[in-house]
Every structure is written in structure tokens, then in C-alpha cells.
């Protein structure tokens, strides 16, 4: 579905990603693990079109997207939920959700998506008319994910969904991620919380200093000596 081929990404003169390649198949959860500054967010931002690789290619459903501007990539049904949610705090919850489906002409479909989202996140229905800034941390994360889902994306990219959440909320969030995959969404998730991520993911990649050092099924990664020592602390 998505295939990234040897991309190099620079922040001006500093190289952040070195020949990164990986694939995401339909209906799977791919997790990307790595410590701070490994290049996880850079990878997602490049996929979302906020950064452009200096070389290499990104193919999404048989289309090259590495040069496309962000708003066009969004229209191809790729949604990014940035780190910390990045929602519009001065707007209501419903307005935020509406912006998630921005540009889609079919209003009937929007209402359908909204119903679907209320089913997954009932709390958002209750707080629909409240300002987004009044939500709690966990609710904000839900809102951010829900916003990403409004467009019914083929690929949902989550940047550190556990960021700043209480342990209970973290499990809740990952449960939702799994639920979404079962409903047919393909998910690419970037995480520092390796334990949870490896528990729900199908396949995983290890990113270190801008390079992919390991790629395998999550099952195998959990058994891997190096991963156990450095990422799971076992």
C-alpha cells in the first residue's frame, strides 16, 4: 500500500534520515520504534508532505507522492495525527471534527463519519459543543485521532499517541488503535512506548540515528535480544 524507498531527508544541511526504506501493507499496524531524535517524526512528516526527501521515492497506492504538497496528500486519504494532537484549541470539538473532513463535498458522508466516530469515542459526542481547550489530555488525544479519522483515511499515521497520557489512557488508546485496524484502517504508528506498541502491532521497524536498523514482525521483535535489552528493558 505504502512503500518508502531509500529516502534521504535534510533539515537544511543536517541529514535526518539516511536511506530509509520500509513498507506498509493493507490492513496492518506497522510500528516504528526509536528513541528521541531517531527520526520518527521526521519520517511521518515526510510522508505527510511537510518535508520533502532530497532523494528516494514514496509510493502510495501506485502513485509517487514525495513531491506533493501536504494538502494534496491529505486528499489521497492519508491522515496524520501529529504529536500532542495538534488540534484547534479555540474551536469547538465539533468544529475540529468538521475540519478533519475539510474539502470533502459530500455532506451526507461527513455526517455518517461523525456517527461512526461518536460510536468509537462516545465522550466526544457529549462534549461536541465545548471548546477543544477544555478537554482533558486523554480526550484531546481521542479528538486528535478522531479528527484524523473523519476523512475515513486509507492510511492513518499516529505520532506518539501515548504522549503525555496516564498509563491507563495509554492502554485505552492502543486498544482503540487495534479496534480501528479491525474495522479496516491501515495504521502506521510511531512510538517510544515500545511495550505497548509491540503488543498491538503486526510488524515493526527500529529507527536509530535516522537509519532503519531492524525490521521484522512484532512477534519476532519482542523475542529479539537487542530489542529486549535496549527497548523493553528486560
Amino acid at each position: 500500500m505504502l512503500s518508502v524507498n531509500n529516502i534521504n531527508v535534510f533539515y537544511r544541511k543536517i541529514q535526518a534520515l539516511w536511506a530509509v526504506s520500509f513498507d506498509v501493507m493493507q490492513r496492518e499496524i506497522v510500528v516504528m520504534l526509536g528513541s528521541n531524535g531517531a527520526g520518527k517524526s521526521t519520517t511521518l512528516n515526510t510522508l505527510a508532505g511537510l518535508l520533502h526527501p532530497s532523494s528516494g521515492s514514496i509510493r502510495f497506492l501506485c502513485q509517487e507522492i514525495q513531491e506533493m504538497p501536504s494538502f494534496k496528500i491529505v486528499s489521497l486519504s492519508i491522515s496524520l495525527v501529529p504529536e500532542g494532537g495538534a488540534f484547534f484549541s479555540k474551536m469547538t470539538v465539533n468544529e475540529n471534527l468538521e475540519l478533519g473532513a475539510y474539502g470533502r463535498k459530500d455532506r451526507g458522508k461527513n455526517i455518517e463519519s461523525l456517527k461512526w466516530i461518536y460510536e468509537i469515542f462516545p465522550v466526544l459526542k457529549l462534549k461536541g459543543k465545548k471548546l477543544a481547550s477544555t478537554l482533558s489530555g486523554g480526550e484531546r488525544q481521542m479528538l486528535a485521532i478522531a479528527r484524523g479519522l473523519m476523512r475515513r483515511p486509507k492510511l492513518l499515521m499516529l505520532d506518539e499517541p501515548s504522549y503525555g497520557l496516564a498509563p491507563l489512557m495509554v492502554s485505552q488508546t492502543f486498544k482503540t488503535v487495534k479496534q480501528l485496524r479491525d474495522l479496516g484502517t491501515t495504521i502506521l504508528v510511531v512510538e517510544q512506548n515500545s511495550k505497548h506498541a509491540l503488543a498491538v502491532g503486526d510488524r515493526g521497524y527500529l529507527l536509530e540515528n535516522g537509519k532503519i536498523v531492524l525490521g521484522d514482525t512484532c512477534e519476532n521483535l519482542r523475542q529479539n535480544e537487542y530489542v529486549r535489552k535496549c527497548y523493553l528493558g528486560l
Binding site: A48, L50, P69, S70, F71, V74, S75, L80, P82, A86, F87, F88, S89, K90, M91, E95, E98, L99, G100, Y102, G103, R147, R151
Partner: peptide, 19 residues
């Protein structure tokens, strides 16, 4: 609404598919 979103965060607005 798009203009309001741009005012709050241009990057997030771009993520939402706003040109």
C-alpha cells in the same frame, strides 16, 4: 472556518487538507 484554522496553526490547517 478554514481561515480560523490557519490563524491558529498554519501547519495543522495544512494537515487538515486546507490549501
Amino acid at each position: 472556518m478554514a481561515l480560523k484554522a490557519i490563524g491558529e496553526s498554519e501547519e495543522a490547517a495544512e494537515h487538515a487538507g486546507i490549501n
